[in-house]
Each structure stands twice: as structure tokens, then as C-alpha cells.
């Protein structure tokens, strides 16, 4: 029944490490493009965990959830990059500490 030759815990550890990298990137970087990239890394690691679970139990649900995560990532990046353009035009910088007020 076990569909994986690699132990599932190892893959989940890799997904957790990727998520941690993304989280630290999100907290430590102040450039908004790098913050968006960190969000992508975090979503990607969640997708990796879902696909791992789907492969472990040989069910298609993991890949279905992967596709839904893909949709969320695409929509988030489209809106986020539109915001990047607006912020660059309005504040002339990509530093998020300069743009920390809701009414610029």
C-alpha cells in the first residue's frame, strides 16, 4: 500500500525546511519582491507536503490540492506584482519599511 520508497518523514522534513526558509525570508527581507518570492517558496513547500501525502497513500487528492495551491499562488502573485508596480510608482522604492502606512 505504501507508494513511496523514500520514508515519508524525510520528505516532510524537506518540506518543513523549505517552509522555514520561506518564513525567515519573509521576516528578514524588506524588499517586496523578495517577500513575494518567500511567499512562493512557502506555498510550494505546502504543495510538496500535499503531494507527498497523496503519493504515500496512493490517492489523487494530494495532486488535486496541489492544483488548488497553484491557483492561489498564481492569483496572489498577479495581485502582488500589481501592488509592486503601484508602490514603486508612489514611493520610488521597494523597501517595505518606507511604505508602512495605509494612507501613503
Amino acid at each position: 500500500m505504501d507508494g513511496l520508497m523514500v520514508p515519508m518523514e524525510h520528505v516532510l522534513v524537506v518540506a518543513g525546511l523549505l517552509f522555514t526558509c520561506g518564513l525567515f525570508g519573509l521576516m528578514l527581507r524588506r524588499n517586496i519582491i523578495f517577500m513575494l518570492m518567500s511567499l512562493e517558496v512557502m506555498l510550494n513547500s505546502a504543495a510538496l507536503a500535499f503531494v507527498t501525502a497523496g503519493a504515500h497513500w496512493a490517492q489523487a487528492d494530494g495532486q488535486v490540492m496541489f492544483m488548488l495551491i497553484l491557483t492561489v499562488a498564481a492569483a496572489e502573485v498577479a495581485v502582488g506584482l500589481g501592488l509592486v508596480l503601484q508602490i514603486q510608482r508612489r514611493f520610488k522604492t521597494l523597501d517595505m519599511d518606507r511604505a508602512n502606512r495605509l494612507r501613503g
Binding site: 495532486q63 497553484l70 499562488a73
Partner: peptide, 28 residues
């Protein structure tokens, strides 16, 4: 993904993540 037996997810990862979403970043 491919090595775990999820070839469709692997293809989507390359086409949509590495292809479309990263190209958006490059454009911006």
C-alpha cells in the same frame, strides 16, 4: 514530484510555477 510518482504535478510545477509565475516576476 516526478520521483514520487506524481508526473502530472511535476509537469504543472514546471509549466505554471517555473514557467508562468516566474515569468511574471521577470516582467516586473
Amino acid at each position: 514530484f516526478f520521483l514520487m510518482g506524481a508526473p502530472f504535478a511535476a509537469a504543472l510545477e514546471v509549466v505554471i510555477y517555473a514557467g508562468a509565475i516566474m515569468v511574471l516576476f521577470v516582467f516586473v
